[in-house]
Design a protein around this nucleic acid. Structure first.
Lengths: 280, 280
DNA sequence: CGCAGCTTTGACGCAGATCAATTCAAGTGG
DNA sequence: CCACTTGAATTGATCTGCGTCAAAGCTGCG
């Protein structure tokens, strides 16, 4: 199913043994989530391995192609290893509303594990490297390792929390709304080590941004210029820079608590190392 | 914690044996969810009982009081047995945005089981009867019965799916947007047997409705009048009537698939019986 | 060079916010 | 049974944020 829906190119074979590259990335990506869980209860090596072993193929998806098509009944879930993706819905046949922007480490298709039918399509915004994890493996894991099941559940709960926040933030005027998105992306990218100092790479057009916040691309442009004029952000090329984090947060009414990363205890070394890699 | 936050009145004692009233309601409420799960795999009586036994107190919450306060770290989750509740957030200190309307059978506070901090408060819109289920019991259940854990997970996934839909529906003009909400409520109330024919009871002011859809109460009023004028809905007193379901769905671009109730296999007898009870 | 996609700018119209006043419905107490 | 109160529904007038249409710069790539 997946193969027919998106332009893909197998990067690693599906054998459980020889996709060492994928395993390395996966361990790196899953690590923050492991820490989250371990801040409460210990996770055995066996449990960690069980999760890592579950990954099947790693595929590439070209920009603008669907990772999960509308109404599909996928038999596997997708973990973003690289690139930006989004979940979206088309309303009234005209407007495309992006419900979530996904970055490295997001388990984008996890809900389809239990919801037989994928209720919203997911598209690659840029070219993406995606790990495909068979549902079968996930279900087996969640049966044998209740704590891992809880980890997966937790991931979807955090997603849902972010969705609710997005719903509320719509009440803000356009500049604050967009600033809020910039704040959220900074925090989420920092978690996976994709920030460098106070800036990050945002390979997204203003039209995409508009579809994400529910504004026309023209108005996004004007709002961004407002932000630039106020010295709240710099955004040229694909680089977003935040001169004054505190001031931006206040302006955007941003409080990161809804992302539930405060217990992640990130190691700064990891953050900076990964950041260096990201711009090579 | 809970006791201090809301005006409550214990209806049944917390002993695991003598709250027979609560057990009866609970079994009735959980039944549809059981069927959902059982459409895929069998659920043993022991599993069902485990879930039912987990309920602690049943309390009453007065209208407009919080069931879960902002930033609380609840040690139990709440299941709505009767009445309407809502999750909300206050944006920029001025606007209150309702992120979800909850009805009978909704496990409103389930995310707080894993997300230590409740990221959004939940309030009673009308007076509510609420079953309080200790987290401890839920965790024990989810460890021992992986399928029940999956059931709880599923409930939160459906919630999240509805949130995403709400995000998208914002793109519709006010009348269609409100019509969509009426459609969603009809389907969800039908699932728990709170509809009678093509109408249901909606004990909610236009201001609350406005906070739910993100519009001013004045504009909600005008939009509702548009709907009335087009013969799409009747809404007088607390009764919403839908003369022509198909027409309303088309107008609202409503497709119930995102609620994932199509596999619930509801028994019509139950629906009508429950409906009769609901207006006595 | 020249296409193609993105950003920027301008002009104009409208959906919906806001403020304010009036009507309506349901109690409540005398 | 009727003044009085309180909260909600309704209506009107005005203002504005944002959408839409359209054209003009910018940038990178074949």
């Amino acid at each position: 199913v997946l193969a027919s829906l998106c332009v893909m190119e197998p990067v690693a074979s599906s054998g459980k043994g020889n996709n060492s590259n994928a395993l390395i990335s996966l361990r790196m990506i899953l690590d923050p989530l492991f820490r989250y869980i371990e801040s409460r209860e210990h996770l055995s090596d066996e449990e960690k391995w069980a999760l890592e072993r579950s990954v099947g193929d790693v595929i590439n998806v070209l920009a603008h192609k669907d990772i999960v098509a509308h109404g599909a009944t996928p038999s596997s879930s997708s973990l973003i290893l690289e690139g930006f993706a989004c979940g979206y819905q088309v309303v009234a046949g005209r407007h495309r509303q992006i419900t979530a922007l996904h970055v490295m480490g997001d388990f984008v298709d996890l809900p389809s594990l239990l919801l037989k039918r994928a209720d919203h399509p997911i598209a690659a915004v840029t070219q993406c490297r995606v790990a495909v994890v068979p549902h079968e493996a996930l279900l087996r894991i969640s049966d044998r390792h209740p704590r891992l099941a809880r980890l997966l559940w937790l991931a979807t709960l955090i997603e849902a929390s972010a969705d609710r926040r997005r719903l509320a933030v719509r009440r803000l005027p356009a500049p604050a709304h967009i600033a809020h998105l910039f704040c959220e992306l900074f925090v989420r990218l920092k978690v996976v080590g994709l920030t460098r100092g106070n800036s990050y790479c945002l390979p997204v057009t203003q039209m995409i941004l508009g579809q994400a916040v529910g504004l026309s691309s023209v108005h996004v442009n004007r709002a961004v210029q407002t932000l630039r004029g106020a010295g709240l952000i710099n955004w040229s090329g694909q680089t977003v820079t935040i001169p004054n984090w505190t001031r931006l947060c206040e302006f955007a009414h941003f409080n990161p608590s809804y992302l539930h990363v405060d217990q992640l205890k990130l190691a700064d070394t990891r953050t900076s190392r990964a950041a260096q890699r990201s711009d090579s």
